[in-house]
Structure formats: structure tokens, C-alpha cells
Design a protein around this nucleic acid. Sequence first.
DNA 1: CACAATACATAGCATTGCTATGTTTTGGTG
DNA 2: CACCAAAACATAGCAATGCTATGTATTGTG
Lengths: 210, 210
Amino acid sequence: MARTKDPVVRSLLIDRAAQMLRTREPVTLRSLVAGTGVSTMAVYTYFGGMDGLWKALRQEGFSRLAAKLAAVAMSADPVRDLAALGAAYLSNALESPDLYRVMFDAGFELEDAAAADETLYCLVRAAERARETGRFRDDVDPVELATQSWAIGHGLASLVATGPLPRQALAHGVPLLTALFVSAGDDPGRCRRSIEQAWKAVLPATDELP
Amino acid sequence: MARTKDPVVRSLLIDRAAQMLRTREPVTLRSLVAGTGVSTMAVYTYFGGMDGLWKALRQEGFSRLAAKLAAVAMSADPVRDLAALGAAYLSNALESPDLYRVMFDAGFELEDAAAADETLYCLVRAAERARETGRFRDDVDPVELATQSWAIGHGLASLVATGPLPRQALAHGVPLLTALFVSAGDDPGRCRRSIEQAWKAVLPATDELP
DNA sequence: CACAATACATAGCATTGCTATGTTTTGGTG
DNA sequence: CACCAAAACATAGCAATGCTATGTATTGTG
């Protein structure tokens, strides 16, 4: 027996905040609602304050990342797929670096932690397939290998997104992932071919080191 | 024919800001100068504003990191030294994670960019030595290998410092660096021994995966 | 229809970073 | 040594920020 929240307002605010991040406008309480017709109180009824908005924005970032990873077509070559997921991760991070920074900001509190797990499990499943098809050794733990791939991807994405490394440095992902997958048991030549193939399909712009 | 700045005040403010970061107190203009006897204007005469303070704080973070890396004793085993530098990097980042986050915040503007280069050159020199002593192949570019080591270290440090991974995940550095250095030509068994030796000397707390 | 719970709008508060204004110190110069 | 201008220093006040308190309007339910 009360008024119900309008989900349109909620997603409108999140989308607008993401857009303001992309255009580098400072996202403040008043600038966020300016022009939308809603008042500042909306941020409190829907998110409980600015902190809640940032948390929801992190969630949105992980949801978009999960969608990008889910859109990567799996093939008969699980190592290629693993590299394609890594390249998609980098592509997503560099496509909207400010949202990526927000995703990994302090606290790392998410409304739904399953979204972050989902992104990791994409990698875990590909690693499992690589082990089942004999590309990786039997003693390789898919979760650990996926975590290590994540560390490589996040390291490159973060260093490029925050400035110290240029965009072309993303190409370091090829030798790094090759080294990791070869250490997991894959044949060096075959591994390199799988990875380079995936890289050019997903990150065609940055396929050469400076 | 004017008054000169007192360098003591400058370093006092930087040290106090670093201390407040460590104790998780919010670093604001007024809270920073509270209790120090100096007024808020000091932040403007010495740093030109809060942005300048953050920039100086980034510089301080890189200076401390450079000191930590310089304190790592070099040995006759360049691969061990390279791993020891990586472990020291992780150790420094996790010792004061808030300062580490500030170092890689937006913009990445430094007062003296040479400090950041210095940290990378520590790794480059070790990689060069590894190549000269035959541990790495001749076609290995020391700068590229150092950059790739940096990406691994930053990825792990960032994921642990911001929350998603637990402290024990730093141990992933061992298999990751091993994979990278083996891909550079080092003998697998010898490489693993060199890295584990360095790891236990610098990061004795986190030498096992969960 | 009536009511109460909740969304929504407005106004005001404490705090933030910053600037304008005045005061004091100090380093070079005749 | 006396002078003075330039710069450090102190204080007050401003616009903007996030938040809360208060009042109004809306709507789902009995």
C-alpha cells in the first residue's frame, strides 16, 4: 500500500552516470540529476546516496564486461578461446577506461558478487576445456590458471588505462599469455598461433609492439 | 629579496598525508593541517592546491618504491634477482596499499618522471644481466621483459590491494614469473629454484597458495 | 473511496577546496 | 644598518558538494 519505484529512473541515472564518466564530466549529485527532470532525492531513494550509486556503477561495469565475454564465440580451439576472452577483457577495459577504474576502486563492494564471479568462470571453463582436450597438463588447476590470466589482463589494462603505458602495450598480452599457457603444458608453436589468431580477431588495432 | 620556503614544512605535510592514508583517515585540506601549526595556505604555497599535494604524494610513493628496490641485494643469480625485485615490488605495494592506489590514480602525472623510470630500469638491468650470463636468449629485449614483469606485478598488487583477491594470491607471482622467464629461455627447473628462493627471502609470509 | 506508506520536491546544514585580503617575515641593496 | 618589496603566512569568506530534515503528492491496498 505505497508508491512503487520506477526502474526506468534507476537505469536512467546509471546510464547517465556511465555516460558522464565516458565524457569525463565530473559526476556529482547535482550534475547527475541536472536536466533529467528528477530531483536529487532520487539518488537517495534508489541508491541510498552517492556511495550506493558508485556501487551500482561497479555492478554495471561488471555486467557489461560479462556481456562482452559472453559474446565471444567459442571454437574448437580452447586455447584460442582463452586468449580471445583475454583480448575481449582488454578491449572492454580500454573502450571505457573510466568505468574500468571505477570497477576496481576502493572497497570493491558489489551489489551482486556473482557478476564478478561470472566473468572469472568464463575463463575457468575455457581452461577446463583446454585440459580436457589435452592442450594443458592434467595437474593444471583451471581456477588458478584463470586467476593468473586475470592478473595479466588486469595488469596490462590498468597500466594502460591509468596512463603509464601506451595503448600499444596491450600487445604484451600475446607473449605473456603464450608464456603462461606453454607453462601449463601447451605446445609452444601451436599456442602462439592460437593466441595470435584470437588477438587479431578481437584487438585488430593493437597487434604490434612499438 | 623575498622570503624562502621552508623545506621542512613541505616534507612534514607529505609525511603526514602518507600517514593519514595509512591510517585510513580522509585526507582533506583542513584535516591535513590540523594540529601541525601551519595554516591551510601552506598547501597552496608549497603544492599549489590539493591536486599538487596528490601529485607530490605519487612522487613520494615512487621514491619509496625506488628505495625498496635499490635495497634488494644483487647476487650472482640474475634470475633470482629479477624475482626478488618483483617480490619487493609486491611487498612494497601491500605494505601501504592506499599509497599504492594513489600512485596509480588518474592522470599519472609526476613531478619527476625519472623516478618511475628508475624503478623500471632496476628490472631492465637485471634482465640484461640474465641475458649476458646466458640464462635468457639473445633475442630477448630486456625492456620488454621488464615491462611484462611489471604488468604481472602490478596486476597482482592491484587486485590484492583493491580487494577482489586475498593476500595469499600474491603467491601466483611465482608460477607467473617462472612462465615468463622460461619463455625467455631459462631452464625450467633452475628458474623455478631461483624464483622460489628469492620469494621466500622477500615475501616469507605468502609463500603458499590457498 | 479512504488511508497510509512511500516516492518526490525543496530548503537548509556542515564540510570541502579555493581565493581574496590583509599582515608579517625576510633577503637583497644603497 | 636601515629600507622595502616580495613572498610566506594567517584569516575570512565564497561556491559547490553530499546529505538530511521537512513538507507535499502519488498510489497501491483494504
